Simulated assay, not measured.
Amino acid sequence: MSVEIPLVALLAVFGYFGIKLFRPPTWLVVTLLLGGFLLADTFIAPVIEGGAETGTQIVNNTND
């Protein structure tokens, strides 16, 4: 049996509990979110996407 959870929902849960448990400063959370959003529109985006795909393949044990 396999369960499929949308990535956004999983990230929201991890983010919620991460903020509740570790209590990072608000400026740090905002800076990381804004920085990630801004990096998505630069020349580094394909490298980030490739790294995310490779990490997903490693975690899921798939070889495409």
Rank of each mutant, 00 (worst) to 15 (best):
T42P: 03
W27Q: 08
K20P: 06
V29L: 10
T31K: 13
A40P: 08
L34T: 14
L32Q: 05
I48R: 02
Q57I: 01
G18Q: 09
I44H: 05
T56A: 14
T62Y: 04
N63A: 13
T56Y: 13
E49G: 12
G18W: 01
A52C: 05
K20Q: 00
A45P: 00
A40N: 14
P46V: 07
N63T: 12
T42F: 02
A52S: 11
D41Q: 11
L28A: 10
T26A: 06
L21G: 09
L21E: 02
E53R: 15
L11A: 10
D64Y: 00
L11K: 00
T54I: 15
T26K: 11
G35T: 03
V29C: 10
L11E: 07
T42A: 06
L21K: 11
D64R: 01
G15S: 01
G55Y: 02
F17E: 03
P25G: 08
F37S: 10
G35P: 12
T62R: 09
G55T: 05
F22W: 12
I58L: 15
V30T: 13
T56D: 11
V59F: 07
I48C: 00
G51A: 05
F17S: 02
L21M: 12
V59P: 07
L11V: 03
G50A: 01
Q57M: 05
L28R: 07
V47E: 11
A9S: 08
L21S: 08
G55D: 02
L38W: 03
L39I: 07
Y16P: 04
G15F: 00
D64M: 09
L38I: 02
I48S: 06
E49F: 01
G35Y: 01
R23T: 07
Y16A: 15
F14L: 14
D64A: 08
G35Q: 00
G50M: 01
F14V: 11
G50K: 08
K20W: 09
L10P: 06
N63H: 11
F14Q: 10
I19A: 11
E53D: 04
E49W: 04
N61F: 13
E49V: 05
I44V: 15
F43G: 09
V13A: 10
E53A: 14
I44F: 13
E49I: 07
T62I: 14
W27Y: 13
T54V: 15
D64G: 05
F17M: 00
I19G: 07
G18T: 03
Y16Q: 10
L33H: 01
F43C: 09
L38E: 10
T31A: 15
D64S: 13
I48N: 08
N60A: 05
F22T: 11
V29K: 06
L33S: 07
W27V: 03
A45W: 04
A12N: 06
T31E: 12
T54R: 15
T54C: 14
F43I: 11
I58F: 15
V13H: 01
L34E: 07
G18L: 01
F22K: 14
F17K: 04
F43R: 04
F22A: 15
T26M: 04
N63G: 07
L32N: 10
T42D: 06
L32G: 03
L38P: 02
K20R: 02
T56V: 13
E49M: 07
L28V: 09
